Simulated assay, not measured.
Amino acid sequence: MTIRAVAFSKCRCGKERGYDDERVAAKALGRAQAKRDRAGARKGTRRGLCRENRFYQCDYGMWHLTSQSRTEYLGAAG
């Protein structure tokens, strides 16, 4: 079994992982969620694990993963 990584690059906004398009970010989100779920299953609980919920586009046009929900973001932004 080989694990294929999702290609990312450093974004000009300062975040380490930036994805070029929405499709690649969606794929990375799915992989990150699966990784967190497997880690929680090994541990016996997902308590305390940070889990990415969505992706967003930054001002520089790249896509990033975040654990912040859209409701939390809109509350913080508004």
Score class of each variant (00 low, 15 high):
residue 14 G to M: 07
residue 14 G to T: 02
residue 15 K to D: 03
residue 15 K to N: 10
residue 15 K to P: 04
residue 16 E to D: 08
residue 16 E to A: 14
residue 17 R to G: 02
residue 17 R to W: 02
residue 18 G to I: 04
residue 18 G to M: 04
residue 18 G to A: 05
residue 19 Y to C: 12
residue 19 Y to N: 10
residue 19 Y to P: 09
residue 20 D to L: 13
residue 20 D to K: 13
residue 20 D to R: 14
residue 20 D to E: 11
residue 23 R to A: 10
residue 23 R to M: 09
residue 24 V to K: 12
residue 25 A to N: 02
residue 26 A to I: 02
residue 27 K to T: 03
residue 27 K to W: 05
residue 27 K to H: 12
residue 28 A to P: 04
residue 28 A to M: 05
residue 28 A to R: 05
residue 28 A to H: 03
residue 28 A to V: 00
residue 29 L to I: 01
residue 30 G to Y: 01
residue 30 G to D: 13
residue 30 G to K: 06
residue 32 A to N: 07
residue 33 Q to G: 06
residue 33 Q to F: 03
residue 33 Q to S: 09
residue 33 Q to E: 09
residue 33 Q to N: 07
residue 34 A to E: 15
residue 34 A to P: 01
residue 34 A to S: 14
residue 35 K to Q: 10
residue 36 R to V: 07
residue 37 D to F: 12
residue 37 D to A: 15
residue 38 R to K: 14
residue 38 R to S: 07
residue 38 R to E: 10
residue 38 R to M: 08
residue 38 R to F: 09
residue 38 R to A: 12
residue 38 R to L: 15
residue 38 R to D: 14
residue 38 R to N: 07
residue 39 A to P: 00
residue 39 A to W: 00
residue 40 G to E: 08
residue 40 G to Y: 00
residue 40 G to A: 14
residue 40 G to K: 04
residue 40 G to W: 00
residue 41 A to E: 09
residue 41 A to H: 07
residue 41 A to C: 08
residue 41 A to G: 09
residue 42 R to M: 15
residue 42 R to C: 14
residue 42 R to N: 14
residue 43 K to T: 11
residue 43 K to E: 12
residue 45 T to H: 15
residue 45 T to E: 13
residue 45 T to L: 08
residue 45 T to C: 10
residue 46 R to C: 11
residue 46 R to Y: 09
residue 46 R to T: 08
residue 46 R to V: 09
residue 46 R to D: 11
residue 46 R to A: 15
residue 47 R to L: 14
residue 48 G to P: 09
residue 48 G to D: 09
residue 48 G to I: 02
residue 48 G to M: 07
residue 49 L to Y: 12
residue 50 C to M: 10
residue 50 C to H: 13
residue 50 C to T: 08
residue 51 R to T: 11
residue 52 E to L: 14
residue 52 E to I: 05
residue 52 E to K: 15
residue 53 N to V: 09
residue 53 N to T: 06
residue 53 N to E: 12
residue 55 F to I: 04
residue 55 F to L: 11
residue 55 F to G: 07
residue 56 Y to P: 00
residue 56 Y to N: 00
residue 57 Q to S: 03
residue 57 Q to V: 08
residue 57 Q to L: 13
residue 57 Q to W: 05
residue 58 C to K: 03
residue 58 C to Y: 01
residue 58 C to H: 04
residue 58 C to F: 01
residue 59 D to T: 08
residue 59 D to E: 15
residue 59 D to K: 15
residue 59 D to S: 15
residue 59 D to G: 14
residue 60 Y to S: 14
residue 61 G to M: 14
residue 61 G to P: 08
residue 61 G to L: 10
residue 62 M to L: 15
residue 62 M to W: 05
residue 62 M to T: 09
residue 62 M to H: 10
residue 62 M to C: 13
residue 63 W to F: 06
residue 63 W to P: 01
residue 64 H to E: 00
residue 64 H to L: 01
residue 64 H to D: 01
residue 64 H to W: 01
residue 66 T to Q: 07
residue 66 T to M: 06
residue 67 S to I: 05
residue 67 S to F: 12
residue 68 Q to F: 07
residue 69 S to F: 11
residue 69 S to C: 03
residue 69 S to W: 13
residue 70 R to L: 12
residue 71 T to M: 06
residue 71 T to S: 12
residue 71 T to G: 13
residue 72 E to V: 02
residue 72 E to H: 04
residue 72 E to D: 15
residue 72 E to K: 08
residue 73 Y to V: 08
residue 73 Y to Q: 05
residue 73 Y to I: 01
residue 74 L to V: 12
